[in-house]
Design a protein around this nucleic acid. Sequence first.
DNA 1: ACGCTCACCTGATAGC
DNA 2: TGCTATCAGGTGAGCG
Length: 301
Amino acid sequence: MPELPEVEVVRAGVEPAVTGAVIAGVEVFEERSLRRHDPALGPFTEMLQGHRVLAAVRRGKFLWLPLDTGRALVVHLGMSGQVLLRSPGTDADRQLRIRLALDHPDHGELWLNFVDQRIFGSMAVDAMQPTRDGLPAGFSGRASGPWSGLIPSQVAHIARDPLDPGFSTPLFLAALARKKTGIKRALLDQTLISGIGNIYADEALFAARLHYEQPADSLSPAKARALLAAVRSILNRALAEGGTSFDAQYVNVNGQSGYFAHSLSAYGRQGSPCPRCATPLVRRQFMNRSSHLCPRCQRLR
DNA sequence: ACGCTCACCTGATAGC
DNA sequence: TGCTATCAGGTGAGCG
């Protein structure tokens, strides 16, 4: 799924089901889905079994569920991960990697299925540490608690995302001005700004009329601000439409697709006319993936 | 210290 | 039908 809007759809979807629930059972069908779990902290299953979930928090594309043990269950969807809520006894989803049986005081029993075709995603139990700036670690709806100011260790190096109230625009602009690389690489660098992936990077660069290889340190402060505004606008619009889905691979916790794919201007539209100038959009290979752009509106300067 | 390449995976689809 | 090549929304280890 998974750029910021899609992960937020998952977070918001699981929040009411997991908050306050006890993890009654854990089944791991694919050990490779625990790649990010450090066994030195303890066995994955034992660190979850019998413990209560306190909230659902997200920073960028990382999601975590703080536990009453002081640790958190970290979930990353990778390229193809999904979190699906199912009634107990439901037939196993295709590519089901991990299943948590939840027991909620109000809603009863529920299965949380972690499904992942490519196994680039993962679940892990991780220790928590205070945030550097003392602000809430990520977005958790309206909920807050002692866990608010704590971030899983393996997420601590990830920058705040541009929808986070704690995101510092001056710090981001300064970091961008120091980057000796192309602007798309910088947008995809989760230690500079998080939550942006290949789709929304291409969309934001299209909106800001920037070529993906434009040196990051060549943008004027005004241009950099305009790009950041474009990023925020696109992420917010995608969020409002429930995220981007091209097929059944990308669905919310109830198995439904988002609609933002209908609103894409550049991504996946090679050969179609540019919405601004009607020049055919092109696709180029970049960083072992594709970049979509208008060769006329988005020239290298 | 930083920028960049590549490995990590499965499955759908297109072309021969 | 069946083979091969290509493509897919992410991350971070390790190299120079």
